[in-house]
């Protein structure tokens, strides 16, 4: 009754090449987006600390609320089709995709990191002060490592959630995993099988990411388990 024809996907070596390339592009862009997004998110979270000037604080909050309350696809289209017209300069779609991903991820990461920073006990900061550490040293040496450790699980699930939306970059022609699937389905007309395989590949990538996150948890934050 069910006539599955998965072999239609690996019938042509071109299809397989596209899939492999798609996995690579998806992983590459989301990893880069994750790293840069984390750095930008950190800056956004730090800008919200009580010592920073209120202009900076409001700018950071507005940015975060603006991103978090609008869909990624709209941000992506604006960055890809709107910004180049404003600057009168065209850049490759991959760059637009990466920019949109970073802008998007950073707002979500900032929210998680802010919670992490707030979760660090006040006594830690007082101890650092009484040991003459400067504000900057206190933030980077004392607060940040503990903040990361405290919210690492949230950061993991937030990243996975965001990763699962990156397939939208196929809409602007970036040849990621979703794009490869649509390319194949357009040619072998086996949409169902193609998207099942695609889903499996996404799940596998998520497994990979989760494994990396928990490795970091195990080694970088082993002081938390060691009690």
């Amino acid at each position: 009754m069910f006539d599955f024809r998965f072999y239609e996907i690996w019938r042509e070596s071109d299809f397989i090449d596209r899939l492999i390339n798609g996995v690579w592009i998806s992983v590459e862009l989301s990893t880069a987006g994750g790293v840069f997004g984390l750095i930008m998110g950190l800056a956004l979270a730090a800008a919200q600390s009580s010592v920073s000037p209120s202009v900076l604080r409001y700018a950071s909050i507005s940015y975060i609320e603006g991103i978090r309350n609008t869909p990624f696809i709209v941000q992506l289209f604006f960055v890809t089709f709107g910004l180049p017209l404003i600057f009168n300069y065209r850049w490759p779609f991959e760059a637009s995709a990466l920019l949109a991903i970073v802008l998007n991820f950073s707002a979500y990461f900032a929210e998680v990191l802010r919670a992490g920073i707030e979760s660090v006990h006040r006594g830690q900061i007082e101890a650092a002060q009484s040991l003459c550490l400067t504000r900057r040293q206190t933030f980077f040496d004392i607060v940040l490592p503990q903040a990361f450790a405290n919210v690492w699980p949230s950061l993991t699930s937030q990243f996975v959630f965001l990763f699962l939306t990156t397939g939208l970059i196929s809409e602007i022609g970036v040849e990621d995993l979703t794009w490869s699937g649509r390319y194949i389905a357009d040619r072998n007309f086996r949409d169902f099988e193609v998207f099942i395989v695609l889903t499996l590949l996404y799940v596998l990538i998520v497994f990979g990411y989760k494994a990396i996150f928990s490795l970091v948890q195990r080694y970088a934050f082993r002081w938390r388990v060691a009690r």
Binding site: L164, G167, L168, F195, L198, T199
Partner: peptide
């Protein structure tokens, strides 16, 4: 499953 894949499926 990515929401996008659900939609395609």
């Amino acid at each position: 499953i990515p929401l996008l894949m659900l939609l395609f499926l």
